[in-house]
């Protein structure tokens, strides 16, 4: 049962990954990519890493791919036009692809590493989430924090490169608005008739 499921899902992953690069419309490419992500999450479930699988869906499918889709939809580039020149690069691309494939095949055929080793998705714990939780903040504390620093750098960088203060734009100051009282805005006068204020 699990084997059938594996081959089924793996086939979907491969087909959708292939379609990512074959699709004519870039938006379709991204949609295929999403399918590939989603099916990869299925593969993760099969090996018992359900926590990782859900994270993959939440992070990659739910957030990253949405932004991809955003960018691709907004750009509205005529990709058929763009792709016209790519034919020239095909031989080179195929060459690089073949070299990489050959490397992997060679490495795994000649390599001495034990490829048959069974994979344990949750070593030393009942569930996958528990296993990750046990090492993430202890053994790999440094890496976890460094990942945070990388994100900080990305954030600072994005702000540096894109934020522009436009003094002429009008902004809403909510705190000022809500703290405004009636007495700040107007006062009641009692003018004598015929005299004015």
């Amino acid at each position: 049962m699990a084997v059938i499921a594996f081959y089924l899902i793996a086939a979907v992953v491969l087909v959708s990954a292939l379609s990512v690069i074959m699709a004519r419309n870039p938006v379709h490419s991204v949609l295929w990519l999403i399918l590939a992500f989603f099916s990869s999450a299925g593969l993760l479930v099969l090996i018992g890493a359900e926590f990782l699988a859900m994270l993959l869906v939440v992070v990659y499918v739910g957030a990253v791919a949405v932004l991809f889709l955003f960018v691709v939809m907004m750009l509205d580039v005529d990709f058929v036009e763009l792709k016209r020149g790519t034919l020239r690069y095909w031989p080179f691309a195929v060459l690089v692809g073949i070299i990489f494939a050959a490397e992997i095949v060679l490495a795994s055929v000649i390599g001495t590493a034990d490829m048959e080793t069974n994979f344990d998705a949750s070593p030393g714990a009942e569930t996958n989430a528990e296993a990750i939780g046990q090492v993430m903040y202890t053994q790999y504390l440094l890496l976890f924090q460094m990942a945070g620093i990388i994100l900080l750098v990305a954030m600072v960088g994005a702000i540096v490169l894109t934020l522009r203060h436009r003094p002429e734009t009008k902004r809403q100051n909510i705190a000022k608005q809500t703290s405004r009282r009636r007495s700040d805005a107007y006062e009641l006068k009692d003018p004598t008739p015929g005299q004015g204020i």
Partner: peptide
Amino acid sequence: LMTLYMGVETLSLSSYVLAAFHR
């Protein structure tokens, strides 16, 4: 290797932004 990669990324990301600092 993981520390190495994380460090390389921190250094490179900041460098990319610095290179384009005069946006």
